[in-house]
Structure formats: C-alpha cells, structure tokens
Computed example of a mutant assay.
Amino acid sequence: MTNSRISGFYNLNLDERRKKIADSSSLHDFGTLDSALTHGLSLETAMHMVENVIGLYALPLGIGLNFQVNGRDVLVPMVIEEPSVVAGASFMAKLARAKGGFIAESTEPLMIGQLQVLEIKNLYEAKQKILDNKQELIEYIDTFPSSIKKLGGGARDIEVRIIESSPIGSFLVVHLIYDVRDAMGANAINTACEQLSPKIEALTGGKVHLKILSNLSDRRITKSKCVIPVKELEFVGADGVRPYTGEEVRDGIIAAYAFAAVDPYRATTHNKGIMNGVDAVVIATGNDWRAIEAGAHAYAARSGKYTSLSTWSKDNEGNLVGELEMPMAV
C-alpha cells in the first residue's frame, strides 16, 4: 500500500529518495525505477516524435508528498522548473490530511467534437432537420468499429448551435457529444466528426468545413475539495516575523480569493498558481498540458468574465474550505 507521508524526504540524497519512493509504493523493483529515472528519453526516440530534432531538453521530476485522495495515499509526480511548487503542494497536502485529505470526483468522460457548417440557406430549418434525425445520426456513428466503443464509450448526443454573426457571416455548429472512456479522446472525436460530416451535409445542404475536437471539455469536469482545521494554519513567528493565528491566516486566504473572484488581473495570477501544480502533474503523466491549460482558462471565463477556478470559504466550525472545479481531459 502506498504511503505518501515520508518524513525527512527533503534531507535525503538522490539515491535514498528513490529507494524511499520504491519502498513507499508498489514500485518495489528499485533497479527498474532507478533505470527509468536516470536514462529517460533517448535521442533516437525523440527523432521519431517531432520534426527537426537537434537534441533533448530536460526538466526536473519531483514527487508531491502527503497527498491523500478519497481516503487513499498517493505519490504525485510533478515535472516543473519553478522552485517551491512541489514543496508548496506537499505542504498544503500535509495540512489537508488532518481532515482526511482531498475528496475528488469527476463527471462522465464526455468530449465535444465540432462541425462548422457553411453555405446554409436557412439556418433554423437546417438545425431542426439535424435534431429531428439526431438518434439516427448517433446510431450511425456507433456502427463504425472503435476500441472506445468496445469499452462502453461512443456517441451520446448531438447538439446544434446557430452563430448569428461572425467575420464571415452566420453559420451552423454541430456538437457531437462523445464518451471517450479513459482516453483523452482527440483521435476518436476527430474520426467520428469526419464520419458524421457527409450525413450533416446531406441533411442541411451546406458544406462542412472544420471537423475537430474542442479543448473546452466542459462536460468532463473534475472537482476537488479539502477542509483544513484552523489550528493547522497557525504560524509561529521567528526571526523577527510576527506570529499569526489560524483565524488570521484563514481569513487572509479567503480575502485573497475574493480579490481573484472579482478582478481578472488578479484572477490570471491566481489561476497561474493553480496551473503550476496541475501542469506539472499533466506533463509528468505524459498528457497534453496545452489542452488542459487552454480549457481551464476558457472555463474560468464561462460566465463572460474571467474569474478564479477555485473558491475558499469557512464552514460552520471555522475550518478553511477549498474547492476547485475545472475541465480535465486526460
């Protein structure tokens, strides 16, 4: 069983840290772990990944400690060049352990594929035709072989939006809602949009232009919550720095959140701090951090005004309560 509470980890040397991680997790083969962390990506492999390769670029891989998620200890890999992010995340996770750590949940893994339909004479009639044939279109998409379909995923819904005004005039947008299971889903969505395109053109008399995944995955939301006892927030003064009561620290955090909630200039920096930790984990796990970042900031502006992704408050017992909600297509 994994134990994320490793006392004195910071003071260990590199070999001792790797041994500790292996002993504290299911990675009992220290030799395999050591080899993977030492050698990493080869230049030969890199040559087959992207174009015009001339070398490799390395970033530090750290481990976020003290995390307890839904009652289970986890060691969190984080790839980042900025100091204090791993330490800060580990410290906050330590404070959250006092009330059971983090409680997290996710919605169904639904992604959106978009089809932009141009050259339509009557947008409202075209929209209605698509909606009238929605079930047939969904069943049609699911007739194509798909590994995601075999795992229980597939087309779930079709929605239609009318864009009344744009730099090229009005047009129609069709949203294909697709359950991608544990995949990020880009390839499956793009393929399904290509397959759907001729059917949409036949129904509307228009021309399908773009057929592509949206990285604003607002149907695939992850929520996380922690409760921190006010006594855990007490700061004992030292070296000329005055002490702070837990209530002062709690109220200071809530006041800083309130600033981010109403001011986009502050919210941008506030959310950058959130994404410091999120991006570090996304990169370490080999996911598309650019997609996560873009979706997060678009989600923060979903009300028409850019605001904080997180909220901070106090409960009836005076505890500090933190909540985070954002798209998470990984």
Rank of each mutant, 00 (worst) to 15 (best):
A192S: 04
S7W: 15
G240C: 03
N276H: 14
L14H: 15
R18D: 05
G31K: 14
K134Y: 03
F67A: 03
D23Q: 10
S7F: 15
A260E: 00
H209P: 13
S313A: 06
G8V: 13
K225N: 08
R242D: 09
I177W: 05
R250C: 02
K305W: 10
I212L: 14
A261H: 04
K149A: 08
I103F: 10
I148P: 01
G304T: 02
I292S: 04
K199H: 08
I212W: 12
I221H: 01
E136A: 08
F9K: 00
G100W: 02
S224H: 13
H39S: 14
T45Y: 15
T285N: 11
L210C: 15
T311S: 09
L213K: 10
D179T: 02
M184A: 15
I54K: 13
G40M: 06
E16A: 11
N316H: 12
D179E: 05
E232I: 07
K314P: 07
N319V: 01
N3K: 12
H48F: 13
R18N: 09
S84Y: 12
V282D: 00
E108Y: 13
S170D: 11
T2Y: 10
E194L: 13
L43I: 12
R219V: 09
A202H: 06
V85G: 02
F67Y: 09
P145L: 07
L203R: 00
L110E: 01
K149H: 09
I228S: 02
T38A: 10
T285P: 09
L233I: 08
A298D: 11
L27D: 04
Y124S: 12
I120N: 02
Y10I: 14
V249L: 07
R220W: 13
R250Y: 09
K134H: 04
D179A: 02
Q114A: 12
V180G: 00
R5C: 15
D142E: 10
I177P: 01
I162Q: 04
L123Y: 02
D34H: 07
N215H: 15
D179P: 03
E194K: 07
L110H: 02
K20F: 11
G240H: 01
K99R: 13
A238N: 13
A202R: 03
S165Q: 15
G318P: 01
R161M: 15
I168A: 11
K121G: 11
G237N: 03
I6K: 01
I177Q: 02
I103P: 08
S24L: 06
E247V: 11
K149L: 08
M326S: 05
S310M: 08
N133P: 06
A298M: 12
P60I: 04
A294H: 09
N13M: 07
I103D: 10
E293G: 14
C193W: 01
L233C: 05
V53A: 07
G71Y: 03
V86W: 05
E323F: 08
I148H: 06
V321G: 01
A155C: 06
A291D: 07
S310H: 07
A87L: 13
Q116D: 12
A93S: 06
V174A: 00
P77F: 05
A104Y: 03
D15S: 12
Y257P: 03
I120P: 01
T143R: 13
G240P: 00
C193R: 00
